[in-house]
Simulated scan of single mutants.
Amino acid sequence: MSSLVNRQIRLVRRPQGVPQPSHFERADAPVPDLAAGEILVRNHYLSVDPAQRGWANDEGNYSTPVPLNSPMRALAVGEVVDSRAEGFAAGDYLYGWFGWQDYCVATPAAVLRRVTEKAIPLTASLGVLGINGLTAHLAFHKLGRPRAGDIVLVSTAAGSVGSFVGQLARIAGCRAVGVTGSPEKVATAVARYGYAQAIDYRHEPDIEAAIARACPEGIDVFFDNTGGAIADAARGLMRLGGRIVQCGTAATAAWTPPPTGPRAERNVLTKRLTWSGFVIFDHLDDFAATAAKLAALIESGQLIYDEDIVEGLENAPDALTRLYTGENRGKSIISLV
């Protein structure tokens, strides 16, 4: 295996806030021989995710930062080329922590799930059947606890998670209202992603008033991917016994120094709110069963997904930056095939 050359995108400088292409470099490395218990995966598609900002910096995120001068931590889907690990064989397709690189020598601990769906494209394993779709389904149902007739507000409604939450809310008999960042995304959220109404926050002088107009009876479930001003506005409009699912904080570019803003505790107290944080990797045991549920919804035509696929490993850093400017149209994926 040492004759194989492995192209990698390495993190070489820590970002302060959103990573830029200048924080990464392309490098080549030999593929080492397999040791007992290891598998060699050839990556077909790489994921680009908002959480990579936290993995790249050292701002005290919930996960350990990526070491400098090493391949950028990333989820990927690929094919087993060789295996010295029990239960894995050449030709298996896997989804896991394989990094921004052509090849990965990994142990089974790096594998999040086996890809067994035959009728669904392999790229779906990075989005609707990956952590994006899994997050939407598990966070919405476990923490949001939707009931038919609920009013559900979702920030980044046209994003890689929000696009599924709107559809799942509709399937659950809820009325979904989305918040997104352009007229085009507003139209897409309503036409494709299950939203009864959507708000373009960039063109609203008073976001709280805009949400109040869209949700005149208040909000039962707030699925928040951004935090910031949108969250400040939404919390004041929650109904008694409402549930806030904190799934992301994309509106805050950096957490050092800590930002300040309105105090939320009075709303939490007087409205008896449940405000829960969700990290997908706390729910690994649910991945296989939840992916099967999502696959069934896709095959029945109830759940759709969009992908923004860019060709070439060298374009991964730029794709990550584009994610934070909202330029992507669907799940951001890097193709290596």
Rank of each mutant, 00 (worst) to 15 (best):
R73C: 03
H23D: 15
G87H: 14
G37R: 11
E38G: 04
P32S: 12
E38A: 05
P50H: 03
L94R: 08
Y45S: 01
V80W: 08
M72D: 06
A76Q: 03
A35L: 15
S70M: 13
R84C: 04
P30Q: 13
P21T: 02
G54Q: 09
S70T: 13
R26M: 15
W97Q: 09
F98T: 00
F88P: 00
G87Q: 12
V31I: 14
G91D: 03
V41Y: 12
E38C: 08
P71A: 02
V31T: 07
Y62A: 09
F24G: 00
A27V: 11
A85G: 04
F98H: 05
V66D: 11
A29C: 03
S63G: 10
G96P: 14
P32D: 12
G54V: 02
G99L: 10
T64Y: 12
H23G: 07
A85H: 11
V48Q: 10
E25V: 02
V18K: 14
R10M: 12
I39R: 13
G54S: 13
V18N: 10
R13P: 05
L75T: 01
R84G: 03
R13N: 07
A29Q: 04
G96F: 05
W55H: 09
H23I: 06
G37C: 06
A90S: 14
R42H: 07
Q20E: 15
A27P: 03
V41H: 06
G96C: 05
A35R: 15
Y95D: 00
P21S: 01
V12T: 15
R73L: 09
I9Q: 03
E25G: 01
Y95Q: 04
R42F: 06
R10C: 15
G60V: 12
S83C: 05
D28E: 15
N61I: 00
S83W: 10
D58Y: 01
P71N: 03
G54Y: 05
L34N: 08
A56M: 10
P71V: 00
D92Y: 09
R42G: 01
N69Q: 11
V66W: 05
S83V: 11
G99I: 01
P30F: 11
P19S: 08
I39A: 05
Y95E: 00
G91E: 04
R53E: 00
V18R: 14
N61K: 12
A89K: 15
G99S: 13
G87S: 06
M72S: 09
N61F: 15
S47E: 03
R73T: 02
S83Y: 08
S63T: 07
R73H: 09
Q16P: 01
A27C: 09
R53H: 07
I9C: 10
V48N: 09
E38M: 11
P32G: 09
E79Q: 14
L75G: 02
D49N: 12
A51P: 04
R42D: 00
A85V: 13
V77L: 06
G60L: 12
A36W: 11
H44C: 02
G91V: 05
V48I: 15
A27G: 04
F88V: 00
P19E: 10
D58Q: 06
P32A: 13
V81A: 09
G91C: 08
A35G: 14
F24N: 02
A74N: 06
E86G: 02
N57I: 03
V80F: 05
R53Y: 10
R13F: 07
S70H: 06
Q20V: 12
M72C: 11
H44Q: 13
L46R: 03
L68Y: 08
L68C: 07
L68E: 10
G54D: 10
A27H: 09
